[in-house]
Write a protein that binds this DNA or RNA. Sequence first.
DNA 1: TGACAAACGGAACGCAGGTTCCGTATAGTG
DNA 2: CACTATACGGAACCTGCGTTCCGTTTGTCA
Lengths: 211, 211
Amino acid sequence: MTARRSARGTLAGDAEEPPAAPVPEQATRPLRADAARNRQRILEAAEEVFARDGIAVPIDTVAERAGVGVGTLYRHFPTKEALFEAVVLRRLDELLAAVAEPADDATASFFAFLEQMGEQVALKHDLFDALAEAGVDLEARCAAKVGTLKEEVRALHGRAVAHGGVRADITADEVMGLVIGACSHAQAPGAVDDSTRRMVRVVCDGLRTDR
Amino acid sequence: MTARRSARGTLAGDAEEPPAAPVPEQATRPLRADAARNRQRILEAAEEVFARDGIAVPIDTVAERAGVGVGTLYRHFPTKEALFEAVVLRRLDELLAAVAEPADDATASFFAFLEQMGEQVALKHDLFDALAEAGVDLEARCAAKVGTLKEEVRALHGRAVAHGGVRADITADEVMGLVIGACSHAQAPGAVDDSTRRMVRVVCDGLRTDR
DNA sequence: TGACAAACGGAACGCAGGTTCCGTATAGTG
DNA sequence: CACTATACGGAACCTGCGTTCCGTTTGTCA
């Protein structure tokens, strides 16, 4: 069940890898073996469960899925939001990586990214929640990263407009809102359904100047 | 702010038989004057409050706004959902009326309706919730009316496609989903913001064959 | 292997929100 | 004006869920 996650190879089970730990912490002593294992399991379970049900899912579901008690979960993540953040930050990083992917021209880059974003948002309900700000106020670090993403989209959009392929009478925020909105009804598990894909395509077509 | 997607009616109690009391109001004895007045106040308050906050708003908020106690509210409406239904059914009727409004041709009718729908959905968060099925299972009568609406949109869309102004490679459900999705981020109180209107316009443009 | 800090699990707590209960108030009537 | 069915208000109750607490288990190290 934890399959699709490994596609990125980004973390797997080694030491701390988030670029720069949250706080400039002084000499974190290494986790005990069982603790490290559980932490990993919790993260994997959270990724699955949050993707399927969004942030609304009860924390117990994550704990159960991970095969640990809630107490253990809270030992590793001080709040539900902290766990959510841990999951979503990674998702946002993946999206940000997609921004940089090369394409034929500015317009193509723009639409390629939007499609990618649609896929991810449709597939990961937590990402939807984070971007739609449906959950309460997301943690500062999350908000910051969302801000970065918005900035990138703004740039991407700006370039595509300059290139002449995309209408200018709309903001980058609105573009994101449209794509996210089109994914509102997406089913989470498994692959992205055709319906959602079609809806994103309509949005993209609405953004084109040519066509 | 508002929970939107995660909105979840709390239906406590059991999962008993649907009494299916299709009791067509038979000679209900007239309400006492104060009761009638309160019922009216509750409905008005609910319309306001649900429009602003969607179904996620606590029932106490409605009661307070109406200037009655919760007990009174429950005397008039057996559950929160029942009250919600009472409000939304009226909204749905208004939308259905808009379907019939005359326009130049099938294509124009279609887009005029979508715009109208966008306005209403953006303005009334309860309508959004009902159409996005964010709250759990909406009452049967609500679901039925939503079904009728979908049917009408299907017809409208079919005619517009036949008329040649609208692309055919999308279903009426998806069209509705797109408009609703575009309104996801709308602020409730006051008038529809330009941003939302722009987003709906992009969706409509994406649906056009010409342009 | 024994000792102990670290980690575990899950019962218990607190709060929020829907729903019920019941003592009190009042409209309507004779 | 008295009487009663109707209606009222809001405290109390119940459930779901996030979080905390604490007695028990276990990894690690000497």
